[in-house]
């Protein structure tokens, strides 16, 4: 796992070097609400909460706390 992550990070480090330069005034499409990484924050929170209480994997999306009587 750790090795895989390191390899992945190395690739990611090179990422900015190979992407197309996007000028500040060319971000109109990226600014659209449907292009947000999390377009519907509230619904996403609801689903993450639901999945976290039914599945054992609950990580990756951020850090935070919460309640889960489900353990």
């Amino acid at each position: 796992m750790t090795k895989r992550v390191i390899v992945l990070c190395c690739h990611l480090a090179l990422l900015p070097g190979c992407v197309q330069t996007v000028a500040p005034w060319e971000r109109g499409a990226l600014a659209k609400p449907q292009m947000a990484l999390v377009p519907d924050v509230q619904h996403s929170a609801l689903m993450l909460h639901t999945y976290a209480s039914k599945e054992t994997s609950s990580a990756g999306y951020g850090v935070g706390g919460g309640g889960c009587g489900c353990n």
């Binding site: 999390v38 996403s44 929170a45 993450l48 909460h49 976290a52 951020g62 850090v63 919460g66 309640g67």
Partner: peptide
């Protein structure tokens, strides 16, 4: 039901991730 991980921030909200941080 309850969640364990909440993300955030600008994310985040509610049911599940209160107080999340996350790279949005």
């Amino acid at each position: 039901m309850a969640a364990t991980d909440r993300l955030a921030a600008f994310t985040a909200a509610a049911l599940a991730l209160p107080g999340m941080v996350a790279a949005q």
